Deep mutational scan, measured.
Amino acid sequence: EQIEAIAKFDYMGRSPRELSFKKGASLLLYHRASEDWWEGRHNGVDGLIPHQYIVVQD
């Protein structure tokens, strides 16, 4: 089940696996990879999304 999230802040990925996005961006989350990271998608690209930078939608 995919979960929708909105970016709270701009984020610049620090490795090829991390996604970069702007504040207000819509993100799709697949699952929680760790306490700090989600596996997800932004603009058709899959990668890691930092939990602290997003708001998960109910």
Results as ranks from 00 to 15, higher is better:
His31Arg: 13
Tyr11Pro: 00
Phe9Gln: 13
His31Met: 12
Asp46Ser: 04
Met12Val: 10
Asp58Cys: 07
Ala25Trp: 04
Ser20Pro: 03
Ala33Arg: 14
Glu35Leu: 07
Val45Leu: 14
Glu18Asn: 03
Leu28Ile: 08
Gln52Trp: 07
Phe9Val: 14
Pro16His: 10
Lys8Met: 05
Ala5Arg: 02
Arg17Met: 11
His42Ser: 12
Pro50His: 06
Leu27Lys: 01
Ala33Glu: 07
Asp10Phe: 03
Ile3Ala: 09
Ala5Asn: 02
Asp36Phe: 15
Ser20Phe: 03
Gln57Leu: 07
Glu39Ile: 05
Gln57Ala: 10
Ile54Pro: 01
Glu39Leu: 08
Glu35Cys: 14
Phe9Lys: 12
Phe21Ser: 01
Ser26Glu: 15
Lys23Thr: 13
Leu48Asp: 03
Lys23Ala: 06
Gly40Pro: 00
Glu18Asp: 11
Gln57Gly: 11
Lys23Pro: 02
Tyr53Asn: 03
Asp58Tyr: 14
Val56Gly: 09
Arg17Pro: 14
Gln57Trp: 08
Ala7His: 00
Ile6Val: 13
Gly24Leu: 02
Pro16Gly: 12
Ala7Thr: 08
Glu35Phe: 14
Val55Gly: 07
Ala33Leu: 14
Ala5Lys: 02
Gln2His: 14
Asp10His: 09
Tyr11Thr: 02
Ala5Ser: 09
Lys23Phe: 05
Trp37Gly: 02
Trp37Asn: 06
Arg17Cys: 11
Met12Asp: 13
His42Asn: 06
Gly44His: 04
Gly47Val: 02
Met12His: 10
Lys23Val: 06
Val56Ile: 15
Gln52Glu: 13
Asp36Leu: 12
Asp58Pro: 05
Met12Thr: 08
Val55Glu: 14
Ser15Ile: 03
Ile54Arg: 01
Gln57Pro: 13
Ile3Trp: 11
Glu18Leu: 03
His31Cys: 06
Ile6Lys: 15
Gly13Trp: 03
Glu1Asp: 07
Gln2Arg: 13
Ile6Thr: 08
Gly24Arg: 04
Gly13Ser: 09
His42Trp: 07
Trp38Thr: 01
Ala25Tyr: 04
Gly44Ser: 10
Pro50Asp: 03
Leu28Lys: 06
Asp10Val: 02
Ala33Asp: 05
Gln52Asp: 10
Asn43Asp: 15
Tyr53Trp: 08
Ile49Leu: 07
Trp38Val: 01
Val45His: 04
His31Ile: 05
Arg32Val: 04
Leu48Thr: 08
His31Ala: 10
Tyr30Gln: 13
Lys22Phe: 14
Trp38His: 04
Arg41Cys: 14
Gln2Lys: 15
Gly24Tyr: 05
Phe9Tyr: 12
Gly40Gln: 00
Glu35Lys: 07
Phe9Ile: 14
Trp38Pro: 01
Val45Trp: 07
Ile49Gly: 00
Trp37Phe: 03
Arg41Met: 09
Pro50Ala: 06
Lys23Gln: 11
Gly24Gln: 05
Gly47Ile: 00
Ala5Met: 01
Ala7Val: 02
Val56Trp: 05
Ser20Gly: 06
Arg17Ala: 12
Arg32Glu: 04
Ala25Glu: 13
Ile49Gln: 01
Gly40Met: 00
Asn43Thr: 05
Leu27Asp: 00
Ile49Cys: 11
Ala33Trp: 08
Asn43Pro: 01
Ser15Leu: 13
Pro50Tyr: 14
Asp58Ala: 07
Leu19Thr: 02
Gln2Ala: 09
